[in-house]
């Protein structure tokens, strides 16, 4: 029904190992025979604990990593074809975990301009895009500041603006909030959601925070290089046993409701309260 933007077909990926070290045990693939598609406009969260292959999956979306076997296509272009690399990266932008290691310039607005400058966009158009992108992430007032004076959350929003200014269709975020404090996390998340809602940008967000995944349209749970669960947050988290077998927790509210034996598709504290009131709270008023 909806348009497939990024498609993984039987994708397997092995990280390079030194061939000299013959005694090294055969490495297990970071990603094993994965088939998945992301469609336009969706907000997908990829969950998994360390070593589940979630970051590898993210890096394959814009031809940073090329599948060892199988094929990844972005709007029909295969990432295995080296000539497509740049075209694909014009469509799929990426934000990394460490905000310090992805900011290139010494002034915020110069950094946001870096992407469009590389694309050869006209100067006046770059100016327009930079201002617009900074406003979209609420960092316009900081445009002349130096990145090292910003907080982690602010830096990450600058990084997002940098991708936004390139006008990509997709933003892939690889654990963008892992190094941030709770306030920074909330800021970045709100920003990403707004971009998805208001600008129709497809978001693929790798995370290991349950509460971040809950807010997505679609949750994909990975374990040992395979996709274990794939569905709406309700579908995924109601399968408590499967989620836990991947070494992950379900959101606290879900856990609580399933323990006291009511619906286990409750995802947030608010809806848990509502549900409990519905069942037990009839006389409380």
């Amino acid at each position: 029904m909806s348009e497939k933007l990024i498609e993984f077909k039987n994708v397997t990926y092995f990280y390079d190992t030194d061939e000299d070290e013959e005694n090294r045990p055969q490495p297990s693939p970071a990603i094993k025979d994965i088939n998945i598609a992301f469609s336009k406009g969706e907000f997908a969260a990829v969950l998994g604990h360390n070593g589940s292959g979630k970051s590898t999956l993210a890096k394959m979306c814009n031809a940073i990593l090329i599948p060892t076997s199988g094929e990844v296509t972005v709007e029909g272009m295969s990432t295995s074809d080296e000539e497509n690399g740049d075209l694909i990266r014009r469509k799929v932008g990426m934000v990394f975990q460490n905000p310090d290691n992805q900011i290139v310039a010494t002034i915020v607005e110069d950094d946001v301009a870096f992407g469009p400058e590389n694309l050869g966009v006209e100067p006046t158009e770059i100016r327009r895009r930079v201002d617009e992108s900074l406003k979209a992430v609420n960092m316009y007032d900081f445009r002349l500041k130096q990145p090292h004076n910003l907080s982690g959350g602010q830096k990450q929003r600058v990084a997002i603006a940098g991708v936004l200014a390139m006008r990509t269709d997709v933003i892939v975020l690889d654990e963008p909030t892992a190094m941030l404090d709770p306030v920074g996390r909330a800021d970045v998340l709100a920003t990403v959601h707004r971009l998805n809602r208001d600008y129709g940008i497809t978001v693929i967000m790798v995370t290991h925070f349950m509460d971040e995944a809950v807010q997505a349209d679609r949750v994909i749970v990975m374990n040992k290089g395979s996709i274990v669960l794939d569905g709406t947050p309700e579908e995924v988290f109601s399968n408590t046993a499967a989620v836990k077998s991947c070494g992950l927790d379900v959101p606290q509210s879900t856990e609580f409701c399933s323990r006291i034996g009511i619906k286990n598709t409750v995802l947030t504290a608010e809806s848990a309260v509502e549900e409990i009131m519905n069942i037990y709270g009839g006389g409380a008023k």
Binding site: R89, R90, D100, F114, I126
Partner: peptide
């Protein structure tokens, strides 16, 4: 490690060297 990650990030933002680049600030 930083240099490695930065190189990744720059590639992701379509940096391919000086050719075909424009400048915001003329």
């Amino acid at each position: 490690r930083r240099a490695y990650e930065l190189a990744f990030a720059m590639t992701c933002r379509c940096y391919t060297g000086g050719e075909g680049r424009t400048r915001m600030k003329q």
